[in-house]
Design a protein around this nucleic acid. Structure first.
Lengths: 119, 119
DNA sequence: GGATGAACAAGGTGTTCATAT
DNA sequence: ATATGAACACCTTGTTCATCC
């Protein structure tokens, strides 16, 4: 999020990483579940993130040193394995949240300005 | 702007096309001038559109049947030619503005929701 | 068949190059 | 040197394919 040069709105990736951090904070967390929850909660706004972006966000956060995979869990006879995450560095997580907040605010300002200027 | 499927925030192109329409409405208009004005007015928000996106927006609006190139004007000995635009179909322009407004509002709601959910 | 992940493809935007005055 | 435009390349994101239980 550094570059203040020519930058337009916040990217979907950062937006999702934010929500992933929030889900981990709330201990309810694995990829598909997060996706379903987001799809449900944003459907009315026409936004339905797909599974790839969810996983990319999670993997990014691992590369950032913010999250870590803790375990794969198998739930009985339900033919599925899930990956569970924990914080690798919560301070980094908080810092990232702060940075993204700045970008969210900035993005809001851009949109608000357009609405004021044009309509 | 049709597809309400999986769509995240409004695209830069639509955002700029909106401003191009506004500039034509105000009769002060050619590409570089529009760019300079936008750069100045958005610099404090970290956004500085480049010339390619400006021209692409203009060309798009022509393809949409909303604008038309009217003339190239040469101003004295100043080694430059500029392209001036007029509306080809102002009803279409108004319709487009309305559509983009919807998308701007939707985008604001997405950002606002994230701010509420996470912070 | 439900979850994760990688590969691949398409889209959008930034950078560079070309042309004309 | 300024304005326009096209070409090219990169980055972001969507779609499809692969694997594991």
């Amino acid at each position: 999020m550094p570059r203040g040069e020519g930058k337009f709105l916040i990217k979907q990736r950062a937006f999702l990483k934010l929500y992933m951090i929030r889900f981990v904070e709330e201990h309810k967390m694995y990829g598909m579940q997060a996706m379903d929850e987001l799809k449900t909660s944003f459907k009315s706004l026409g936004y339905e993130p797909n599974h790839s972006e969810i996983y990319r966000s999670l993997h990014d956060l691992i590369d950032d040193g913010i999250l870590m995979r803790t375990k794969k869990v198998q739930e009985g006879a339900k033919y599925k394995e899930i990956v569970v995450y924990q914080f690798a560095d919560y301070e980094k997580a908080k810092l990232y949240k702060k940075q993204v907040k700045t970008d969210l605010d900035r993005s809001m300002s851009l949109l608000r300005k357009a609405l004021e200027d044009v309509y």
